[in-house]
Write a protein that binds this DNA or RNA. Structure first.
Lengths: 349, 349
DNA sequence: GCGCGTTACTAACGCGAGTTAGTCAGTCTC
DNA sequence: GAGACTGACTAACTCGCGTTAGTAACGCGC
């Protein structure tokens, strides 16, 4: 029968460690020792069992805040997400990244507190001040982020996801340069020599500069002269790729291949190529970068460099967990990329 | 001079409310009253100022865990993110959604704790048990989610983002049905009468069923007979759209327009149309749904229904905050969509 | 000059854990 | 058989804050 008083479900009173102690007829200290598997604490097998049984029977779950207060650690890491133009492709892979971070955090016994910031500001300092997080992962950092600089200088545990050459802080990123190099090597192997490059963003962005450097690396290694006229800057979106490819085909009509340092930009570039009457890959080979989910459905399906989003998140999470455990990891982790060959590239005729 | 002992920056000892009290020469209680602006507590202007000054000078920030423990509320909401196939398009808009949730949570004084789950399982019950969150937003729920059912029955504050008709729980979703209707009305206004429909997912997904219902609504209102042969099921990705459109054009070659209930699926459909020699929009008008960032760059730029991702997140956040404040909101919130006319639709010739 | 109501505070308890410094009984050593 | 040691626990303190119950001073009415 439903007790009088209403339809609201009775909220069973939470069991505390004192309840467990009472039920197991031991002290709270013993409960704490048993449940936290404290090494070196002499606990008899019999007592241990009694405590564990009592905890189970009462449905005991330690109270997070109490534990944080007493233990001096929140067991929580903060994830600062900054929405900025260079993130558009990362956005597409955001879900993957989050899962990566989350799974590693869990392995280390941490939860993830999210702090989404608008591009033009917003503070996360308070997360640190209020001791809500033990460490931070800052994604898409800007070099003019004073909060970040201050926190790093104070020695607060931070891992940056992305690149921030101006600041000495451990970071995790994809190996943009090596990835770009791989992309261009693929084109070289197909016999192309006049290879254009459309950047993913203005070169002030390190990711863009790095990818361009990878392009040059590949050319240098193959002893192909670098021609500045073959490089056009894109800017995050497909529209920029469209105009960039138009430019390129006008000023360097003899290119037989183009490395476009972003799938989204490449999407626009493909269209421009089509409109200029160049068949891809028959007349023009195109390699992208990122491998967004839609890339396999481009027309033609895009050969590209896969950005390991989940692994990236996992690496960031792991690095922070390691750091919090006192094990200092490497200062900079670069994740390898992978060439995914589809139908937008072909041997030079 | 750097003090002996190492390069590690001195971590200034955090100030506690007791420190503030000492400095202001009042009791800790007074500090608490002042800083929490407690109504009805007689505090003289002079004292208030002394406390505020002391707090500022010491750089005092209340300790989150202590506050949670004493206050009985974590001031944190949990966000459960489930990665499932029907989320692919939502994924593309995930960043926006997160910002929406985050900003509303902040307004209500809450932080967001993220719990990413794999499609095949993972638990979030523990977030609740450990009192780490005061409420939950569950995104992409499944009707067979027993944890969810149990928590809802216990009266735990939950807002579902998406649809879950089988469970009586407050939810927030985009108005799929009305959006689809708008899309099809647009086609009808352009003079089309043989209008196909490619669903975004199998009809077991409520979003897919709702969008199909909106399609029928529009036809009914215009007294256009519904023809089952004009409906083909898509399944999340562009490949499914490709085959669906091929099917449709074979079995109903006389269609002059198609409503595709997902931009990503539409992307594949556009390609199939092109390959079948149908020019869009001259021979065939296409309307999508979602307005993913890339839609404006499709070939042709896609007319579609905008899914207000940020507003969706904000609505979910607001609903939960309201609920936690004891103000019961509506059980179900449906957000309006907006027709975005681009170049994939034209008047019937 | 005693009670009553304000005003402006404060002492002390409680939240639910983790942790330090024991206690106490039994065993081993020489 | 006194002292050292070990094993198995526990009393009591701590973390930083919110909050309840109370106090002390003051004015006011009669």
């Amino acid at each position: 029968m439903v007790p009088a008083g209403g339809i609201v479900a009775q909220r069973r009173q939470r069991a505390t460690s004192a309840d467990v102690a009472a039920r197991a007829e031991v002290s709270r200290t013993t409960v704490s020792f048993v449940l936290n598997g404290r090494p070196g604490a002499g606990i008899s097998e019999e007592t241990r069992r009694r405590v564990e049984d009592a905890a189970r029977e009462l449905g005991y779950h330690p109270h997070g805040a109490a534990r944080a207060l007493a233990g001096g650690a929140s067991h929580t890491i903060g994830l600062v997400l900054r929405q900025s133009p260079d993130q558009v492709s990362v956005d597409a892979l955001l879900a993957e990244t989050l899962f990566g971070i989350g799974s590693e955090a869990h392995l280390g016994g941490y939860r993830v507190l999210l702090e989404p910031l608008s591009p033009d500001g917003g503070h996360y300092r308070d997360l640190v001040n209020s001791q809500r997080v033990d460490g931070l992962i800052v994604s898409g950092p800007r070099s003019d982020d004073e909060e970040l600089v201050a926190l790093v200088n104070e020695g607060f545990p931070i891992i940056v996801q992305g690149s921030l050459p101006s600041l000495a802080v451990p970071s995790v990123d994809v190996d943009n340069r090596a990835g770009a190099r791989t992309a261009v090597e693929h084109l070289l192997e197909l016999g192309h020599r006049r290879i254009g490059c459309i950047t993913n963003a203005p070169l002030a962005y390190t990711a863009a500069a790095d990818r361009l450097a990878g392009y040059r690396d590949a050319l240098d290694a193959a002893a192909v002269a670098f021609a500045p006229a073959l490089v056009v800057q894109g800017a995050f979106d497909a529209a920029s790729g469209w105009t960039a490819m138009q430019d390129l085909l006008v000023h360097a009509p003899d290119v037989t291949a183009v490395f476009v340092a972003s799938d989204i930009v490449a999407f626009g570039a493909l269209r421009a190529a089509r409109e200029a009457g160049r068949r891809v890959p028959a007349d023009l080979s195109v390699v992208g970068f990122d491998d967004i989910p839609l890339a396999r459905h481009f027309d033609p399906p895009l050969t590209t460099i896969r950005l390991p989003a989940r692994a990236l998140g996992a690496a960031a999470g792991r690095a922070l967990v390691e750091r919090l455990a006192g094990r200092a990891g490497s200062e900079r982790t670069l994740l390898p990329t992978e060439l995914v060959v589809r139908d937008s590239t072909a041997a030079r005729r």
